[in-house]
Design a protein around this nucleic acid. Structure first.
Lengths: 155, 155
DNA sequence: TTTACTGCAAAATGTTTGCATAAGG
DNA sequence: CCTTATGCAAACATTTTGCAGTAAA
């Protein structure tokens, strides 16, 4: 799990991505770091950083997130609900979508990544240049106490 | 690859899913079959079936697709662009997203499915009940002639 | 100083809703 | 018949756009 990073480091990473390090970009990046694991949409990022930055506009948050995703500074996350979500964790990892809580939960598994890496290497698709891959698991979180499906608990 | 199926069969499948087999549902299902591999959104399904069914409404197409996805008659497909796409092919398969053409291309690979199935069985997540999984590959289609990235061809 | 970014507000896109009418079982 | 689905139009939610002004390098 990555940790909250100071602004100086965030600024450096933005510059390394070939972007101007504006105040807005720094605080958007910072917000994404603080929301790690939440896979927020633009609106959520905006709400998170607005109290400390009341002059920033929602449109800028949208543009900034797009720009970040284009330069691969952050990742776009596919969501069952159709919205555009973002993830500051750019380490290879997969996601579990819980159809009860509608959360997207990080699933980091070295072995799974390697398994797929090897598979793709071996398969070596001739008509595609694969740049990245990810696994989406769908299911239900289980009640940690009783170890039974939350579906059954809720309904 | 599944084939275009006649209305009688489509009707049967709708009924088997516990749904009323209305004319609208049959033609939406039929359109989805005819658009196999295209992973269309509601609007595209609507445009496809409108000429032959001018009285059907877009809202109905939206509702029908949602209903189908809920009963697992068709699958929702996660899309890089954020829209809601649907797939009448419910066999286990993966998708390749081409970032140049923005297409979602089916990738059917028995070995990959099995590899993951086994992995999940072995890993046996204690706090999740996994219902399904899929692999998303992202990359670029290669020019079939020259076998080089279409990125380079286009730009 | 130059270029790229921001804020704003408007527009475009995609999707859902409520309700009166119609159709399926 | 009774229930559920449809059509319609309006509302909603999300995202993009254009442009004048501002800030970064």
């Amino acid at each position: 799990m990555q940790h909250i990073t100071n602004r100086h480091t965030l600024r450096e990473r933005i510059v390394e991505s070939g972007l101007k390090a504006t105040h807005q970009r720094i605080v958007v990046y910072e917000a994404l770091m603080e929301l790690q694991g939440k896979h927020p949409m633009a609106e959520e990022v905006f709400q998170h950083l607005k109290p400390a930055n009341p002059s920033i506009s929602l449109g800028t948050v949208y543009k900034t997130l797009d720009t970040f995703a284009e330069t691969n500074l952050v990742h776009k996350v596919l969501s069952e609900e159709g919205g555009k979500r973002f993830d500051a964790n750019t380490m290879a990892h997969s996601h579990i979508y819980c159809s009860n809580t509608r959360e997207i939960i990080d699933f980091e598994d070295e072995e799974l990544e390697q398994l797929l890496q090897e598979f793709l290497q071996k398969r070596n698709l001739s008509n595609f240049e694969i740049r990245s891959f990810s696994v989406q698991l769908t299911g239900n979180k289980l009640d940690p106490e009783k170890q039974i499906s939350i579906t059954r608990v809720i309904k």
